[in-house]
């Protein structure tokens, strides 16, 4: 697999939130506005890149039996760095994200990539994998936040986008809106997967039918 594929697989094909169902808590909790979603996404990209880098560098000297505690300490170190930087330079964002900044430690995407990828690959693939997965996570968050912010507040990234007379749906900003938006987006992805699989199956049947020259009536339904 080349580096380009390592990057693009995290965007859609193996999107951590929408396909692998990892990191669901932050993607529901901070998606009430696009600004918060971007802030969380960038923090996760940073932590994921640095932890993948360090773990990939140390992969031959970490004893297999205690690898998970070591990974957690490495991740927690970078989360603490993010916490301090954000508190110093983006205090408003830090307050808005609240408890979910320290909770990046238990974001299963980061530990998952450490265990599944960085511990088995050299530095460059590990970094590219982190970028792909991080950007995929950010993409999913921004997608959910876009739906919620436009419907719930009539704005996108704090810019008013709704037509005049639009009545914001407060429910979308509250907890239920997050769950329902997430459910519908997952359903949309399932539906497009099914449609693609069906198209592929039809194409195969069509070619097989052409080869064996079956009568057309048998295939029509």
């Amino acid at each position: 697999m080349n580096l380009r594929q390592e990057f693009t697989k995290g965007l859609v094909a193996e999107n951590p939130v929408l396909r692998l169902a990892l990191g669901l808590c932050p993607s529901l909790a901070v998606s009430s506005s696009v600004e918060n979603a971007l802030g969380m996404g960038i923090s996760v990209v940073f932590v994921l890149t640095m932890s993948n880098l360090i773990i990939s560098l140390m992969r031959n000297i970490i004893p297999a039996k205690i690898r998970i505690p070591i990974y957690i300490v490495i991740i927690a170190t970078f989360v603490t760095i993010v916490e301090m930087i954000m508190a110093a330079y983006q205090p408003a964002l830090f307050r808005a994200l609240g408890i979910f900044v320290p909770l990046i430690v238990v974001n299963c995407i980061i530990l998952g990539r450490a265990e599944a990828f960085a511990s088995k690959n050299s530095i460059w693939p590990a970094i590219i994998d982190a970028w792909g997965m991080g950007v995929g996570f950010t993409f999913a968050l921004v997608m959910i936040a876009t739906v919620r912010e436009i419907l719930g507040n009539g704005t996108w990234l704090n810019m008013p986008v709704a037509p005049a007379g639009f009545e914001p749906v407060l429910l979308m900003m509250l907890a239920p809106g997050a769950f329902i938006t997430m459910g519908l987006i997952l359903a949309m992805f399932n539906w497009s997967d099914d449609a693609k699989a069906k198209k592929l199956k039809d194409a195969v049947i069509k070619r097989a039918g052409f080869i064996t020259e079956q009568p057309k009536t048998e295939r029509s339904n």
Binding site: A21, A175, P176, A178, F179, G183, L184, A187, N190, D194
Partner: peptide, 17 residues
């Protein structure tokens, strides 16, 4: 079909919320 499994669980979680 598209809603089976996890998506419907999220929508129900929304209704419970």
């Amino acid at each position: 079909k598209a809603l089976q499994g996890v998506p419907i669980a999220f929508i129900m979680a929304g209704l419970m919320a």
